[in-house]
Design a protein around this nucleic acid. Structure first.
Length: 910
RNA sequence: GGGCUUGUAGCUCAGUUGGCUAGAGCGCUUGCUUUACACGCAAGAUGUCGGCGGUUCGAGUCCGUCCAGGCCCACCA
């Protein structure tokens, strides 16, 4: 065993242990029927991704849960992988192509896919390697990629089954279109943003009444060439007599019917709506109701086409808007334009306004919606924090069909084949299967691929071999499914969480229209969902590349160690609330590691290590007869802290757990117990018992802290001889608080004494702090040879007598002398267990001291008056519980004693 | 427009079923090489618990209302 270095250096520890874990396959998740299963599937990061602070938070939490599960004796599997990220990857590759002056069509599908694969092969492992630096204990042998051959088969199988079960259809409807990616999007991929624009007012001439006009409001004049009607509210008396008549569309000039539709808002603008069924969702619906023709005047890239007229052909939509206004002005049909703010949908990935567009797409009616709701409503799946349940249910209650086809190449190509040369709209000409038709030459496959989320929604079971599991995979699925916890961000609650639940319910069992509760329980993909907060900077701003406020986690790991980063971020991550992170937090995490390191170093320096290889060995060295207040107290504080941690895990209170470990270890153990130890260690008869207690505390602290800070705890575990060469700290089951207390009490250390001891220690510490205060106040804080006198309060003789040496050490005094009479002129402090006087060889400033004591006296008087008032209030005495009244009486009594004492001190000063 | 959420020290957060003098860390001030640790030790200062009203013997905690942030959902052109 080497001597521990003075300052902890994570660089010497972290890579070493990660490699050792990998070499020993310490994270292997193999079914073990003797144990309880604990499973987490990682939210697969995008292949395009690099590690962000969000990943750090998310994966640290998962790692904590998995490591804790191992300590609790469960068989844990944390299954890692990556997502092919359709649009995001497309965007990356196409950007590169643009720089080469090309686009994907120049390359063709096959060449493009080759490049996509190269790119993904090159990037896929970057983020996984970064997760390893963080300490993530995934079973890397089982890493899955959503484009793996097996996974692809799972995705296609799901499609085929849903088609056969009647959930999937193809049709020409309005969907959201991204003019940059040139693909349809699902509703969830569109982000609404308020945009400053103009509300234009124009007029169309009435066909039946030339010279008279109808005034129309619109934000999108560039679509007027696609108008096929003008609509008013049927009960709007201003206009309803015009229904059935016509107006002139100015260009291309055409007669448009005036129709009545209740969707029109009479209050908005002029109350007259131009109806463009091809370019607006509501207009499309109105068009359907009135059998209006649909004129699509846009190209896929949102430039205008020939149908818009010669002037517009090839013009971009925003230029076309200006052009349309110009033309209206020239025709005298433009009235005015006012500033207007409205919400415009943007493509999540490319950040450009989307276009509502009618196209052939594949759609999915969601399966098992009712069951998905009840799974959460009935608590089969629990959300932390629970308020997300409402958001989830609201979405499911208003669920709309899912547009699952994407006009992209990178992804899972839809397993539908059309008979060559035949009508694609006729289902007789379709072939739908995973493997494709027997005579492929006569068929052509659907060009579209599936939405990325239509692959990741299968993640919890497609990663374990569904739908054609090998023998081993069947065991996996049986053992590890349903998974235990899912840790994710709330912004993908619809994209991913809700859909995974529905997929699990639909696929993880035989086909069934309706599921009973028991079946739901077996099929759900996970039991608990923990939603993380969002990481923000100290100004509360979202961390983003453009703001430059997002620290690179790898830099932080380099500077503070992965443990420091993990501990820092977890200590400020309140449940489900946003996290404001700064470097100082991480620094604090690093400091905690250093403190831990040095406390262990102190143990090593203090005395020879005995056999620490088991808890029993350590406890057998306890000498209960030698236990004093401090020994009792620290053991009790430890058990309390461990209990607090246990409750923390039950409630997913990660920051409270971090703070709990921190406070116990730093404030109780290091600040008080270790300091007291220094006097005990000097005393031969107390020495061994004290070292055994230290060994015990440190052992349990290392175990408890291990999920948060896995590297340093592993290192210290071995340094202090808790483990052998052939095992890791995670191989030792952690004792829970009741096990620990039972074992301790069985040694003959009385349970009941703890409460008394704890109270006594509190009083003792107060006494010591007041003495230190006197030293600081009289500028002798740095002297260790001062003399104190003291008189003991009633009932505390034994406590003070037994702790003289401890008090002397903790205060920094050479003499502590009992006295009956207050020494003349000595500044003093009054506490419950006694009055303490600082002996000053030089004269004290009597006036200043008197003033100080008087201030104290006044404060006391105020409290006494308050207490007396309460205690003489009949209502209070009648209605308050006895405990509270008793408490108030005790406080009053203590304060009165103190007041007397202060009075005496002031009198003594003359 | 609907819903969710937050407001406690300069900053980030605790504060259990209402009950003693509202706590912690960071930061700040002062002093300190004390048998681990300056990534440290000790002492100290700092609060209209967002505002107002109510219930209660008693409110940071419960109720109402208002104010201010943040987020999500929604077809008003």
């Amino acid at each position: 065993m080497s001597e521990i270095a003075k300052a902890y250096d994570p660089k010497l520890v972290e890579p070493k242990w990660y490699q050792a874990w990998l070499d020993a396959d310490a994270f292997g998740g193999i079914p073990d029927e003797k144990k309880e299963a604990f499973t987490i599937v990682i939210p697969p990061p995008n292949v395009t991704g690099v590690l962000t602070m969000g990943h750090v938070l998310n994966n640290t939490i998962q790692d904590i849960l998995v490591r804790r599960a191992r300590q609790e004796g469960k068989k844990a599997l944390w299954l890692p992988g990556t997502d092919h990220a359709g649009i995001a990857t497309h965007a990356r590759i196409e950007r590169k192509l643009r720089m080469e002056g090309k686009n994907r069509y120049d390359l063709g599908r096959e060449t493009f896919l080759k490049r996509a694969w190269e790119w993904s092969d090159e990037h896929r492992n970057i983020i996984l390697n970064q997760l390893q630096k963080l300490g993530s204990s995934c079973d890397w042998n089982r890493t899955v990629f959503t484009m793996d051959e097996k996974y692809v088969r799972a995705v296609l199988t799901a499609f085929v089954r849903l088609y056969e079960r009647g959930y999937i259809y193809r049709g020409k409807y309005m969907s959201k279109w991204c003019p940059v990616s040139l693909t349809a999007l699902s509703d969830e991929e569109v982000i609404m943003k308020p945009q400053k624009g103009l509300l234009y007012k124009m007029r169309y001439e009435l066909v039946e009444d030339p010279g008279n006009y109808l005034e129309i409001s619109t934000t999108r004049p560039e679509t007027l060439m696609g108008d096929t009607a003008v609509a008013v509210h049927p009960e709007d008396s201003r206009y309803n007599q015009l229904i059935g008549k016509h107006v002139w569309r100015p260009f291309p000039r055409a007669e448009l019917p005036i129709i009545g539709d209740e969707a029109v808002d009479r209050e908005f603008g002029t109350g007259v709506l131009k109806v463009t069924p091809a370019h607006d969702e509501m207009d499309f619906q109105i068009g359907q109701r009135h059998n209006l023709p649909v004129i699509d005047v846009f190209n896929p890239d949102a430039t205008l086409n020939d149908l818009a007229g010669e002037d517009f052909s090839g013009v971009d939509r925003f230029a076309a808007r200006k052009l349309a206004v110009e033309k209206l002005k020239a025709l005298g049909l433009f009235i005015d334009a006012e500033d207007y703010e409205n919400n415009v949908g943007f493509s999540e990935r490319t950040d450009v306004p989307i276009e509502p567009r009618i196209s052939e797409q594949w759609w999915m009616r969601y399966p098992k919606v009712e069951e998905a709701k009840s799974a959460v409503e009935n608590g089969l799946i629990k959300f932390y924090p629970s308020r997300w349940e409402k958001v989830y249910l609201h979405w499911l209650n208003n669920i709309r069909d899912w547009c699952i086809s994407r006009q992209l190449w990178w992804g899972h190509r839809i397993p539908v084949w059309y008979k060559k040369g035949e009508d694609r709209n006729n289902k007789d000409n379709w072939h739908i299967s995973v493997d494709g038709p027997q005579d492929p030459d006569n068929w052509e496959q659907e060009e579209d691929v599936l939405d990325t989320w239509a692959s990741s929604w299968l993640w919890p079971f497609a990663t374990m071999g569904w739908p054609n599991p090998s023998k081993e995979e069947s065991e996996d699925l049986n053992f590890f499914y349903p998974t235990s916890d899912l840790v994710t961000a709330p912004d993908i609650i619809f994209f991913w969480v809700a859909r995974m639940i529905m997929a699990g319910l639909e696929f993880m069992g035989p086909e069934k229209k309706k599921l009973a509760t028991e079946e739901i329980k077996e099929r759900i993909p996970f039991q608990n969902v923990y939603f993380t907060g969002m990481i923000r900077d100290l100004q509360g701003r979202k961390m983003s590349k453009s703001l430059g406020n997002s620290p690179d986690p790898l830099d932080l790991i380099d500077k503070f160690g992965a443990d420091g980063l993990r501990f820092g971020i977890m200590s400020v991550a309140p449940k489900g609330q946003d996290i404001l992170l700064s470097d100082e937090r991480v620094e604090q995490g690093r400091n905690f590691c250093n403190k831990l390191w040095n406390a262990c170093r102190f143990r090593q320096i203090s005395g020879k290590l005995e056999d620490n290889s088991s808890l029993d060995n350590i406890l057998s060295r306890f000498e209960p007869d030698l236990f004093d207040e401090y020994d009792h107290w620290i053991v009790n504080q430890l058990i309390k802290a461990i209990h607090q941690i246990e409750t923390g895990y039950d409630n997913y209170d990660f920051n409270l757990m971090a703070q709990g470990i921190y406070n116990f270890f730093w404030s109780d153990y290091c600040d008080w117990y270790l300091e007291v130890s220094k006097t005990k260690l000097k005393n031969e008869s107390l020495r061994d018992n004290c070292l055994a207690i230290q060994d015990f505390i440190l052992r349990q602290v290392l175990l408890t802290a291990h999920p948060y800070i896995p590297f340093i705890t592993e290192e210290l575990w071995h340094n202090l001889g808790y483990g052998d060469k052939h095992s890791f700290i995670q191989d030792h089951c952690i004792e829970n608080s009741s096990q620990l207390s039972n074992q301790i009490y069985q040694l003959g250390i009385e349970k009941d004494t703890h409460l008394v001891e704890a109270k006594n220690i509190d009083e003792l510490q107060l006494f010591i702090m007041r003495a230190r205060f006197l030293k600081a106040e009289y500028n002798v804080a740095n002297k260790r040879d001062v003399t104190f006198y003291y008189s003991v309060g009633e009932g505390y003789d034994e406590l003070v007598d037994g702790n003289i040496e401890n008090i002397k050490h903790l205060v920094g005094a050479s003499n502590l002398i009992a006295c009956d009479e207050a020494p003349e002129g000595a500044p003093a402090e009054v506490t419950r267990i006694g009055t303490i006087y600082l002996d000053l060889t030089s004269a004290v400033d009597v006036v200043a001291e008197k003033e100080r004591l008087n201030k104290e006296l006044i404060r006391l008087e105020k409290q006494i008056t308050g207490s007396e008032a309460r205690l003489s209030d009949v209502n209070f005495l009648n209605k308050a519980p006895e405990k509270v009244i008793q408490g108030a009486r005790e406080q009053l009594a203590t304060n009165k004693t103190k007041r007397e004492e202060f009075q005496k001190l002031i009198n003594n000063l003359g």
